[in-house]
Amino acid sequence: GSPGIQSFLPPGWEMRIAPNGRPFFIDHNTKTTTWEDPRLK
């Protein structure tokens, strides 16, 4: 199987799917959430 997208996120980050189907990202380091992919910064 191919590695999940989770493995490509920075340490402490998690990806979830919102009720509307959009992915969002949780930064457990700062306890914040964002719509922006942290890998694109």
Results as ranks from 00 to 15, higher is better:
M15Y: 06
E14Y: 05
F8Y: 12
G12Q: 04
E14T: 10
P3Q: 12
R16M: 08
G4W: 05
T30N: 10
G1F: 12
K31F: 09
P11A: 14
G1T: 13
I26M: 06
I17F: 12
T30M: 06
K31M: 13
D27P: 00
L9V: 02
W35A: 02
T34E: 01
Q6T: 13
P23A: 11
P19Y: 09
P11M: 11
N20D: 12
P23Q: 10
P11K: 12
K41Y: 15
T34G: 03
P38M: 03
P38G: 01
R39T: 08
R16I: 09
P11Y: 11
T33D: 02
T34P: 00
T32R: 11
H28G: 06
P10Y: 06
T33N: 06
N20M: 04
P19H: 09
P11H: 11
G4A: 13
P23I: 13
P3R: 08
L40T: 11
P11W: 10
P11I: 09
G1Q: 12
L9Y: 02
K31I: 05
P3M: 12
P38R: 01
G12D: 02
P11S: 12
E14G: 03
D37M: 07
I5K: 12
S7P: 14
G21Q: 03
M15E: 07
F8W: 14
T30K: 07
P3L: 14
A18D: 10
L9I: 04
T30P: 00
N29I: 10
R39C: 09
T33A: 12
G21Y: 01
D37F: 07
N29V: 10
G4I: 12
I26E: 02
P19S: 10
T34K: 02
F8N: 15
W13F: 04
N20P: 02
S7T: 13
T32Y: 08
F25W: 11
N29F: 09
K41V: 15
K41I: 15
A18E: 05
G21V: 00
N29T: 10
I26G: 00
P19L: 11
F24V: 07
G4T: 10
T32H: 08
I17S: 05
R22G: 02
D37R: 06
E14N: 02
P23S: 08
W35K: 02
T32V: 09
R22T: 09
H28C: 15
P10N: 03
T30I: 02
L9K: 01
